[in-house]
Structure formats: structure tokens, C-alpha cells
Amino acid sequence: MTQPPPAGGWPDPASTGQPSTPPADPTLPVSAQPAVPPQPTGYDPGQPADPYAATTSAPGVPLAAAPYPQAGYPPQPGYGYPPPAYGYPQQTNSLAIVALVLSLIGIGSCITAPIGAIMGHVAMRQIRERGEGGEGLAKAAIIVGWILTALMAVLIVGWILLIAFAILDSSTTV
């Protein structure tokens, strides 16, 4: 045997506790339809728009833990600051690119390698000061530039020694 529904109908388990409205009767004109009470929107005009805006209390009563740092206190991590901006590309220092290109061209020309290494040092300083990207490019320019400069210096010293021995050998045999 089933029991009759309670007065007002069965409660809706998904209901928010507000009284339910009967469905509209399509046979009645619009003016004869029952009045529909306004649904709650979550906005209460009596409350401030920002729930953290009312941070004052009665004198002598301490405030609850504030979500944002108070003036005069050091900022606490995670409060009031946006999360770190991961994924945003940094602007690459153009001097670092030029320094690497000059260092690599130094393989064939030998004169641009030390210029590229020096420009790499200048680019590293700019990157630290400006917070730009391209630190790896500048380091590569420094390393490649100074290695090629050292190889060029060894080659020049070798040529000088070879010429000196050739001159000494030619003067003793004649």
C-alpha cells in the first residue's frame, strides 16, 4: 500500500530549500498564471561586493587572519600576489644572438671570435640587469669565442715559431 504525497508535494532532493513553484498551465492566459517568486541569485545588496572589504572591527577586537598582507608587514607567500607567470616567453637579448653569431663566424674569419666573446660578456650583464632571456646564447658565445680566440693565438704563435725556425735554418745552411 502506498502513502499519499505530503501536503505541498514530495520534496525535491536537489532543492535548495526554497519553496517550489508549480509548473505553468499552458491552457491559462499569461495574466492568470500563478506568480513566480524571484529565485535567489547569490547577490545580496545588503552585503559589500568584496567580502574582504570589511576588515574593520570594534576597538580592542582583533581581526581574523587577513587574506592579504597588512600595511607595514612583510608580504606572506601566497597572499595577495598572483602566481608566478610560468609559460610567458621572455624577450631574448639581441646582443646575445649577435655575440653567438660573431663567435661562430670566428671559425672561418678568426677575428670575430674575440669580438663575439666580449659581446657575450656585455650581453650577460644586460640579461642580469633587464631580466631578459638568452643567457644560454650569451654563455655559448663566451665559451665558443674564447676557445676560438685561444686556438687562434696558438696558431699565430705556431706560425711565428715556424717562420723563426725557417729563418734560422736558412741562415745556417747557406
Rank of each mutant, 00 (worst) to 15 (best):
P40G: 00
A54H: 07
S31H: 09
G42P: 04
P34I: 02
A53T: 00
P37S: 10
P67F: 01
A49P: 00
P67H: 05
Y43G: 01
V30N: 12
G78N: 05
Q39H: 11
S57G: 15
V36T: 13
T55A: 12
T55V: 06
G60A: 08
A32C: 06
P45L: 05
T27S: 15
D44K: 02
P59C: 09
Q47H: 06
Y68V: 13
V61R: 11
P40T: 08
D25Q: 11
V36D: 14
P62L: 12
P48R: 00
P77K: 04
V61F: 06
D50C: 13
Y73C: 00
L63C: 10
G60T: 07
T41F: 03
A65I: 15
T55I: 05
V30I: 11
P37W: 08
P34Y: 05
G60Y: 07
Q39M: 10
A58P: 01
Q76Y: 01
P69Q: 07
P48C: 01
V61C: 05
D50Y: 08
L28H: 05
V30G: 09
Y73D: 01
V30R: 14
D25L: 09
A35Y: 07
G46C: 06
P37V: 04
P26F: 00
A53C: 02
A32P: 00
A35I: 10
P51M: 12
A35P: 07
P29R: 13
Y68K: 11
T27F: 08
P67W: 01
Y43V: 14
D50T: 04
P38I: 03
P69E: 01
T41H: 06
P29L: 09
A71M: 10
A66Q: 14
D25C: 06
Q33M: 13
Y43H: 11
Y52Q: 08
A64D: 11
G42R: 13
A71D: 08
P48G: 03
A58C: 01
T41I: 12
G42D: 12
P77F: 02
P45C: 06
T55L: 06
P38T: 09
Y68S: 05
A35G: 09
D50S: 15
Q76P: 00
Y73Q: 10
Q39R: 14
V36M: 15
A24W: 09
G78V: 02
A58H: 02
A53P: 00
A49H: 03
A64W: 12
A58L: 10
P29E: 07
